[in-house]
Design a protein around this nucleic acid. Sequence first.
RNA 1: GCUGGAAUAACUCAGUUGGUAGAGUACCUCACUCGUAAUGAGGAAGUCGAGGGUUCAAGUCCCUUUUCCAGCUCCA
Length: 649
Amino acid sequence: MVKVTLKGDVVKEFDSGITAAEVAKSLGAGLYKSACACRIDGEVRDLRTAIENDCELEILTFDSTDGKKAFWHTTSHVLAQAVKRLFPNAKFAIGPAIDNGFYYDFDVEKPFSPDDLEKITAEMKKIVKEGYELERFLLDPEKAVELLEEMNEPYKVELCKEHTDKGEPISFYKQGEFTDLCAGPHLMSVAPIKAVKLTACTGAYWRGDSKNAQLCRVYGVSFPKASQLEEHLQKLEEAKLRDHNKIGRELEYFTTVDYVGQGLPVLLPKGARVIQLLQRWVEDVEQSKGCLLTKTPLFAKRELYKISGHWDHYLDGMFILGDPYDETKECFALRPMTCPFQYQVYLNKQRSYRDLPMRLTETSTLFRNEASGEMHGLIRVRQFTISEGHYILRPDQLEEEFKGCLELAKYCLDTVGLLEDCTFRFSQWDPKNPNNKYEGTAEQWEHAQSVMKKILDNIGLDYEIGIDEAAFYGPKLDIQYKNVFGKEDTIVTIQIDMLLAEKFGMYYVDSDGQKKLPYIIHRTSLGCYERTLAYMLERFAGALPMWLMPEQVRVLPISENLSGQAKEVEAKLAAAGIRVTTDVRSEKIGYKIREAQLEKIPYMLVIGNKEIEDGTVSVRSRKNVNLGAMSVDEFIKLAKEEIDSKKRD
RNA sequence: GCUGGAAUAACUCAGUUGGUAGAGUACCUCACUCGUAAUGAGGAAGUCGAGGGUUCAAGUCCCUUUUCCAGCUCCA
């Protein structure tokens, strides 16, 4: 007998060797029916797992993350089965569950067309109806490779061979005529997959390496109920309504022009104004934290980048002015980073340990020649402006200054409303990086990373580790943000650099009279303004916090002949420092309100004969709330409070 | 850079097997002077992204190219 501890610390006894599925069945037919996988002593397992020792057992349904994953993973097998039936020559790569569904990579002669996807979906539905049970079986590594070779699956053979040296048996899952190499866990049967949608068909490189063959990746999502699928698709549609690339254009924050070029958005007055407001605020915050503002050139001779290492590591990413390979002529490059420029400020004269830390910051426009497929709205562009700082410091100051940088970034992100959705990534080097990406020795890297780890752990920060995500000169703490499509990018980065100071000969004279190399922190406090604006537009669906709105208040006279009085109100507000306009057109009040609402204007002040008699304004907020009549002074007080507090929804 | 999708009026989109361009909104004019998300009438507006080709005839078919979108790779 085994003792199984269930949810709520309920302990039940079963015969040894009972499967998790049978335990679920004993607990209730409903639970058994909806069970997707289980967790045994904290580890996610297959429902077929036999229980031979006392353990804690949790039955995972579709409501749990891991239950969903098993469900979606099984759906990816159904997808593969359908593809095999319709396209017998397709070769299979991998087909995992992801955060919002699943995908499967196929090697096919021609990528699937939308038409093909429909046919595949129909075949999947057929397979689900056929209701196959999944069977799991184990093979010795050699036998497993043999089977996969027999099946003529070269990618699977390659995957399998990686595990053969461990000597452990290799697991397979079989449903009907279809067998796949797979670690699981999986559903007991394909029958519960009632609703399936294949959402996209794109290219993806084998093993994520662009040097390898490009495969055809089919994305999809599935649910136990059709209504859940509909709800899911509805949510995706709603998310798209927040897409900055859509509303940023509609609300006239930015536009793009064919003949200007890719990745070169044109900021319209509203977008330019928000960025101006952000920049002024960030510069003030930074200076209040002891930062010194610099203004350095936007481009420099090739020689500067040779010292910094950018010429060797980043040439493809730079815009070059001149022939990079003609050493007899002057050649310039637009700057992709500020570091080597800002170091010149430090190098301007001899520095003492007393001068450190020296916190340099700049509102810095950068140029990066991104590959043509990379550009995306305001999130990924070829020219952007970032608050970029370099703190030059003694080793003993590293921890405190690093913490200061993190506090600054968190403060900035919190103020603009993005912090709560951020995640942290400790980006480390990969000694096995095949492209010789990293400068410095293994010792230097291990040292820098262990120092950074200690600092992060002391702070108690919850972070993920990103291998091979470091900068070429050092490890990073990246603050990550997801856009409305779930794609993650870095919004803020703080980096520890123990290499570049030496390259530039940046010394300080220490208290013992010796010349020593400083450490450098590369940091941004709010990231680049274009990207931050994009995320804010998505986060607030265009209704930015009032302190950043280009137009904060609109005065709406009920009829055209009251525009004189309305203009007086406008002047009063403007004098109080509020950004305000008046809609003097001869339109109905409902029409004017509708327009102001669609433009997300925080407050609308309606003025009719009644208000003029009472000396008041009728205040309506963009949250569709009528706040009633109040005096202009009262409203100014209310508005100023909201602006000064940088309040956000 | 790679894979797939797209580009028609300022915007959102329709346009059948190839037969010569259409709606709503916005804009302009006029009337209305209005009470919390769309007043009515009229008008103007398109080299169908660009270039080439097939054809008696191309928005529609083919090729090239630019830009936009999703994904991969890369990256703030």
